[in-house]
Each structure stands twice: as C-alpha cells, then as structure tokens.
Nucleic acid binder design. Structure first.
Lengths: 371, 371
DNA sequence: CCACCAGATGTTTACGTAAACATAACAGCT
DNA sequence: AGCTGTTATGTTTACGTAAACATCTGGTGG
C-alpha cells in the first residue's frame, strides 16, 4: 500500500533546493503522512509530469498558455495515474456544481417521466448532471421536505414539475442563486414556465369532435389539484361555449385508468353522450373498457379522444385518437431556460408553450345516425 | 436587479473591526473585496454567535460536546444568516458525496422507471441524493459515454439498470471506491445483483395456465438483448419441459405494445394456440388487440398472462392476469446493498431475488371445450 | 545593449468544512 | 492542596482546485 506513494519519485524537479524560503526554519521535515490515496490529485500528476499543479489545472481545463510539448507530458501523466478531477473541489472553487435538481411527484404519470427523461438528456448534452428529488405524496409537508433537502443539495438550478401553488405554500427559501423553472403551472407571472399548450390541444380535440357532427363533447377531467387538468377543463369549456354548444356536466377522474373506468360507467349509461374528451390516455383506456362493458361501441356509438399519446395508445381497443405531447421539447426548453437564467441572459419570468398535435386513429367517428 | 444583493444588509455583525489580526502587516488593509456573498459560511455564523467555526461545525453535524446554551446561540445565528452547509466543501473534506448515480436506458419501460423511483425514495430516506445518468441508445459507445461522464461525477456509488454485458464491454475504469450494484443482469458472480425472481414468476404463470387445462403455453418473448426477457424465456422453456409438455415455437417482440400486436397476429391465426405468456404487459396489450381483431375471445378462446402488473393492466380488455413485480422492493434492496458495500459490510457479489406475485384477473380461463 | 513585452510556467492563496490536536475550566478524589 | 480525568471549546491544518499574482525566458525595437 505504502509503496504507491513511495514509488512516485520526484522526477527531477528543477533543483528546487535553492528555493528554501524562510519558512522551513527548524524541524527536519515532519514528512507528510504517507497514505495510499484512492485517486490521484493534480499534485500527483504535476509531480509525475515535472510541472506545477497549476499547469496541470490549465491542461485539465483546456486553457491556453501551455506548450504542446508540456501538454502532452501532462496528459500522459494523467493517463498513467488515472487522474480524474475531483468535482467536489472543483465545485467548491468555482462556486457551481453543474447540476440541475428536478423535483417531481411520483414518477407514475407518463408526462412527468418523459419530461424528466428529456431534461436529463438535454442536461447531459450541456454538461450538466441531474439530481432527482422525489416527492412521495403531493402534500405541502412533503414538498417542503424535498425543498429542504434541496437546499443542502449541490445544485445550481431547480426544475419543478408540478403545480406551483404547492411550491408557494412551502415556505422554503432557496439559496439566492438557485434558479427555478416550472412545468405544469400557470405561474408565468412569477416564474419561468414551460409547458405544453393545453389550451390549443384541447381546442383541437373539441373542434375535431364537433367537426365530425357531434352535438357536444363530454369531458373526463383530471384531478382538481393538477394545473394541466384544470387548464384542459377550462379550454374544453371555452371551446364549447365559443361554438355555442351545450355544456355537459363535468366528470372527474384522477388520471388513473381505474378512475377512468369508474367515470366511464356513468358516461356509458347516458344515451346522449356520443363524444368524450378524456384528459389523459390512461383515463381514456378505462373509459374504453367501461363503454365496452356496457355494449357501447367505439367509435360507432361513442367517440373518444385522449391526451398525451402514450406509446400504448395505438394498441388500445380501438387505437386511440389523442393529442401528442412533445415532452422531449418541453424538457429541452426547460434546460435551455434554466441555463439562460443562470447566465442571466433570459427573462426572469414568462411562459413558453409547446404545441400539442392531434393524432387521428380509430376511436373517433361521426355520431350514430339518429343523433 | 442589483437591489436584491444591495438589500442584504450585514445583519449587525458584532463589530468585527477589532478582528484585525496580525496578518496585515503593512499595506493599509487591502480590504478583501467586499462582495455580497450569496450564502453565509460557518465563519459568518461563528462570528455572529461569538464562537469558533469548529463549534458551528459540531452543531451543524449534531456532534456532542456542545452546551445546550451554546447550541441555541449557534442555531439562532444560523437561522438569522440563513446558513446552509456547503455540500461541495463538505464533500471535499469528507471524501464522499452522499450521492448515488443511477445509469439506465431510456425511461420508457415501466420497470426501469418504477425501480428508479424506488431507488430515489430509498436513497432520500437514507440521506442520499440520486443523480440520473441517461443513456439514450443502448450501444456500447453510449454506455461508455455515460460512464465517462460518471467518472467525473460526484457519486459514491452506481446502480446500473441494464444488461451488464454492455457495462463489461465499456472499458471504463470507475474510480476505485465507487461501488456498483446491478439490476436486470445475471452477473451475480461478478457484481452485486438485485432483481425480480423472473424464473419463479414465469413458472407460476406457466403452471397457472397448465393448471387450467391448457395443453401447452405459448410465449411472447421480449428482445434478445434484455436479460430479463432472456430469463423469462428460459424459465418458460424449463417449466414446460418439466411438465413434459410440447414446446411451441418462440414468438418475439421488443417490449412495445406495437410489437405485441404484430406478434399477436401470428398467434391469433393459430387455432392450436389457447394460452400465451407475454413477457410484459405492454406486449400483452398489443396481443389482446390482435386477438380481438381476429375474433378470438379472451379468455374464452385464448388465455393471456402478462408480466409487470402496470397500473393500467386492470383496465385492459379484459383486465389482465399478470405477474406483479415489486419494484419498490427491488429499488430499496439496491440502495441497501450499495450502502452496505460502501460500508464494506456486505459481500462483494451475489444475487438477491425479489419474488413476483401472480395477480389473477380476467384474461385466463380453461381452454375451449374441444381442446 | 538594454528596456520592454509576451508567453510559458511557478507560487501563493482562498474556497468552506471537519479531523486532529491543543487548551481551559472544573469536579472528584486522595 | 495537588493530581487526574472529563467536558467544552478553540486552533491548526488539509481536502483538491483554480484565480491572482509572480517569475522566468527569449525575442524586439529604439
């Protein structure tokens, strides 16, 4: 073990003996404790390459002012020792971690997961790492807990994938330099927000169904505490009102297929319901099952449109017409926005919307003849 | 903009003027550049509380040997200054980051996501953060890239959620102290592995179907490069052989519902196929659609069993009988294992299996009378 | 021929924390 | 009283890096 350090001979430093400054007064060199180090440091590389640590630093960071010859030597030494920069020391010195924290509710919804994935990819591309801050239950306490953990965490910025009022309520003070970007929120006046264009997407769905001849469109809504759900509901109302159609009573689910099934039982019982816009694909799946169980055919008797375009949507019975969300783009924009804020190039707040695209499959058709 | 910083008044530090130590010999006090610090350090807290930085450190870490009185004062000072420990400095000093890296393929499969989520939760519970290392495409180059990024990353351990031969092939040298735990692999002889009991689960599925009276069981397999898929296929073969049944030809998919649909078209055409074990629920979904399209009823004509028990499985048409994977437990065990390795308490290698549980729903029944 | 410049390289220092060691105060005992 | 041990607290130092500053070299132009 000891041998490692001992083997590192001073490779003929330029006779630094004369450099005996006034410091080493007495004491016959108390010989630094020779411990076998797990990783090589700049000093080790410097010693082996016969240069100063600073030069190693310059090479490591690709700074100019190093001869090609010297650079080669340093690189060789790095390789020999298996040198890896110590990110902790680097972060301490530089005051930044090159890490983005992502705080989100349980990864059970497709949207969050896909967004997270895109964020991670974009961040990696920009040389940033992503630290995941899971929040088990969407209660204020939990959120506050996550933020408290976050406060001590090594991150330069935070992307929040959830309704922001929980964030507001959690009276946590982030370190002043930590930037925040939010998904799934309407707080564009206070934060930088990136989101799918819920309104436009919903509008496209409703218009598609009305265009097929349906008298009106029912809505299977998501949970009240979700901003996305709320926006879709609002947009649905607006689109119907604008078209001068009757507004059917709202049916509410909680995003899960099971809740879609429960709600679907209600809808299936109503003869006058010929078109349903479900706030996500999972609920649409449950709805499809409920309709099937009640002998109502899709799309002959009832048309269904979903939201999200999860990969399975094309394998539903029948394949689901739905709104495709470009999560990859949302994630990418989040990272861009947060980096811009860190460089103080971007605006402090404002909302960026990513369009949703209607994907036509086989779950929609004109209403039954009689209607 | 600037106002923010300017507004941060020094909250009446105890006239630190007298602290003019003996260092500044000549030069009329070059006055350290008075920059508005973003965060308070231990020294700041110590000054305000009238103690040494070391005492602040002790309080911060909950070490003993501090009077209740002193502790209170320090805590008050911390609160007043909004002190947050600097994790970079801490990591540098301690030589550990309290962070676990998770490297996985695209988060498109339920299993990976759920495992990741459980890992994140368990890690948070243990005071560890999770850094996500996304690998866009499962090529050696990509994996190597991820590991290279990882090498410079601030992590103490790595959990790999993917077939490990890619890891082997990627000739990357992790820093020696970084521990590794693997999911979805058979490399128990070289690594610490945690996984669902693919074999036991598959066996339960096959026995269930045989028990219902089916002559044999067909298998809709996952992609060849997935270890989990391979294990399920092997186990399916073993279970049939053991029962002395005929081994039908293998049908292969790629995990996706779409591939399940394609493969399902083949199966649906065969009259002698009355029972199918699909390697995951998504493919089972596609299979259900294909069977439906061919007028073959489930479960009356064909029985189907899936694997995973995704939340939507209970809303399939019909609700799917499937093997429930306890991803939460897998994730928890990964974290436990990796922490144990870090403390050098655990074995270097070996495999831990988490049982899969057969969930009976409505997609299985005895074969049609004639068969 | 020398002052001066630019580029390459070395030296010092600080980032914030916590281990190791040092000191001080005091209680309990002979 | 004097010794010993215990507890609370302070001081020094090192972790690995990189900015700031210092030094050295060789060339250029007056």
């Amino acid at each position: 073990m000891e041998t490692v350090d001992d083997a590192v001979v001073n490779p003929g430093g330029p006779a630094a003996a004369t450099a005996g400054d006034g410091r080493g007064t007495a004491a016959p060199a108390p010989r630094r404790r020779t411990r076998a180090r797990a990783t090589a440091s700049m000093a080790d590389v410097a010693r082996l390459a016969g240069v100063s640590a600073q030069t190693v630093s310059r090479v490591s960071n690709g700074y100019p002012g190093v001869t090609e010859e010297t650079r080669r030597q340093v690189l060789a030494a790095m390789k020999e020792l298996g040198y890896r920069p110590n990110s902790a020391a680097r972060a301490l010195k530089r005051g930044e971690f090159r890490t983005i924290g992502v705080i989100t509710f349980s990864l059970s919804t497709t949207g969050n997961v896909r967004t997270l994935e895109a964020i991670a990819n974009s961040a990696a591309h920009e040389g940033y790492a992503v630290t995941l801050l899971p929040v088990a239950v969407p209660t204020q306490d939990e959120v506050r807990g996550a933020f408290t953990r976050l406060e001590e965490l090594a991150v330069d910025a935070v992307i929040v994938i959830m309704e922001v009022h929980l964030l507001d309520a959690a009276t946590v003070q982030l370190p002043p330099h930590v930037q925040v970007v939010v998904v799934d929120s309407d707080a564009g006046d206070r934060y930088t927000v990136v989101d799918t264009d819920q309104h436009g997407g919903t509008r496209a769905a409703v218009r598609h169904l009305l265009g097929l001849g349906h008298r009106t469109v029912w809505h299977l809504a998501g949970p009240e505490d979700s901003f996305a759900a709320q926006r879709r509901t609002d947009a649905w109302r607006a689109a119907l009102t604008e078209a001068g159609r009757e507004l059917p009573p709202l049916v509410r689910g909680d995003w899960s297929a099971e809740s879609g099934h429960r709600a679907g039982l209600e809808l299936a019982a109503r003869e006058d319901c010929t078109a349903v816009f479900a706030a996500n694909d999972q609920m649409a799946l449950g709805l499809l099952r409920a309709l099937h169980e009640h002998g109502r055919r899709v799309p002959e008797d009832v048309s269904v449109v979903g939201f999200d375009d999860i990969p399975e949507a094309s394998s539903f019975l029948p394949p689901l017409t739905t709104l495709h969300q470009d999560f990859a783009e949302v994630g990418r924009l989040c990272v861009q926005a947060v980096l811009r804020k860190m460089r103080q190039e971007g605006p402090e707040r404002g909302t960026t919307l990513v369009p949703a695209r209607l994907v036509l499959r086989e779950s929609t058709a004109p209403p039954p003849a009689g209607r």
